[in-house]
């Protein structure tokens, strides 16, 4: 076995060991690596009074804007939670938009948020394409994300 060959094997063995160790660590800490939990996660384990980030889509028809904030429901399709927030909503906030809210689950099952971040998806399109998709009935922005790019038709699509 030449020295080059030996160095190659040593490096491969180290890489394999390191990769396995990293994969194990990431799997073990997976719960702490998520940025937010879904309404279904909260429905399963409850709130226990800790500050958590709740993420999901703003439910269609649930937004009520008041003078000092807004209330709306965050849904992941299976479960939804009512959120109350006093403060300025981000520009991208709308029904059907992804949001991540920081706050505490109240004993009555509502969620009191101290921060609301907008989470936009990976779809980028000009206004005309969005209008065309809406007009043709392929997509309702209030109901969820836009269809995959391959399904777009003209114009511009």
């Amino acid at each position: 076995m030449t020295r080059k060959r030996r160095r190659l094997w040593i490096l491969l063995a180290c890489g394999l060991g390191l990769g396995t160790a990293t994969a194990l660590v990431l799997t073990a800490f997976s719960d702490n690596l998520v940025f937010f939990v879904s309404p279904s996660d909260i429905a399963k384990v409850g709130g226990n009074g800790r500050t958590v980030r709740l993420g999901g889509l703003v439910e269609a028809g649930s937004v009520q804007r008041g003078s000092d904030g807004a209330s709306f429901r965050v849904t992941d399709g299976a479960n939804s939670i009512a959120v109350r927030y006093n403060g300025i909503l981000p520009d991208l906030f709308r029904e059907g938009q992804g949001v991540v809210t920081l706050g505490i689950l109240q004993p009555d099952g509502g969620f009191r948020a101290s921060e609301v971040l907008a989470k936009h998806d990976e779809t980028y399109m000009p206004k005309e394409v969005a209008e065309a998709l809406k007009k043709s009935g392929q997509w309702k922005p209030e109901a969820g994300p836009a269809p995959a790019g391959g399904a777009w038709k003209k114009p511009g699509g």
Binding site: T123, Y124, P126, A148
Partner: peptide
């Protein structure tokens, strides 16, 4: 893809159509 993040997933991949208008 592995974890919930605020950052959006990739728009362009090796498989499937990109979820981005050609003009962009």
């Amino acid at each position: 893809d592995w974890w919930n993040t605020l950052h959006q997933p990739a728009s362009i991949g090796l498989t499937g159509a990109p979820s981005m208008a050609p003009a962009m």
